[in-house]
Design a protein around this nucleic acid. Structure first.
Lengths: 120, 120
DNA sequence: ACTCCTCTTCGACGTTTGTCGAACATCGAA
DNA sequence: TTCGATGTTCGACAAACGTCGAAGAGGAGT
């Protein structure tokens, strides 16, 4: 039964730059958890799945990574038993010039500086 | 239950510029029909609801306008028995500089030049 | 008054989405 | 080999979404 799967299970499919769809990207970015992932990635070159400052179950996180990967926003590679994730900045830039930077800047500028819980 | 609604039924609520949420905007833009509406609006200053080049039922269209309006992307005003819709370009620009233009440019550059119905 | 025309609201329906827990696969280390 | 750590896949589920048709509200024109 064992198929000679060298990789893990499925083979980490990423869309070609030319196949990245704008609406898919916008949709991927419209979720808070995924936006956090992307923002985090924008600040660091690469990061393991479990190290993101999000508060969801591992399975949920895995789901979000899949959405981001299939939208073309991130690239993931396997290293040991870890999955390293990186933003496809260059690809995004090639496909949709300035888009990512503009969206990220918009998010940062619009975010309230910091409002503690219970903020009256 | 006679409500003294002067306007039509509900009073066309639009979020304040400061209340426009980036994720809401991105989500609103991630639907093909709504993107078409926004693109159309980007080319014309104002337009009646029924005159958009989209192919959905009136009720569906109405729903999309509501989503766009509540996200802050469009503004609607009543004129006679028509509802005129306009892009909130200036407001968007103030809230999220360059965002709208970048997204629109991304769409146009990525879209196939023009494919008539029945493509080929 | 009566009739169009324009657009909205109200269910309804099927699909997609975000979420979780349980089970499993893989690698590295003991 | 046996663990432990890391992530994924598989249901399941409720909520949200996109879509429609029917019904209704308001103005304009006859």
């Amino acid at each position: 039964m064992p198929r000679s799967t060298s990789r893990r299970r499925t083979a980490l499919t990423h869309p070609e730059v030319e196949d990245i769809d704008l609406l898919d990207v916008l949709h991927a970015l419209s979720d808070p958890t995924r936006m956090t992932i992307v923002r985090t990635l924008a600040a660091e070159p690469e990061r393991a799945c479990g190290t993101f400052p999000v508060d969801v179950a591992p399975s949920t996180l895995s789901h979000h990574f899949k959405v981001l990967r299939e939208s073309g926003l991130i690239r993931q590679r396997e290293e040991a038993n870890r999955r390293l994730t990186a933003l496809r900045s260059a690809d995004l830039e090639a496909r949709f010039p300035a888009l990512l930077a503009t969206v990220l800047a918009a998010y940062e500028s619009a975010a309230e500086p910091v409002e503690g819980p219970g903020g009256a």
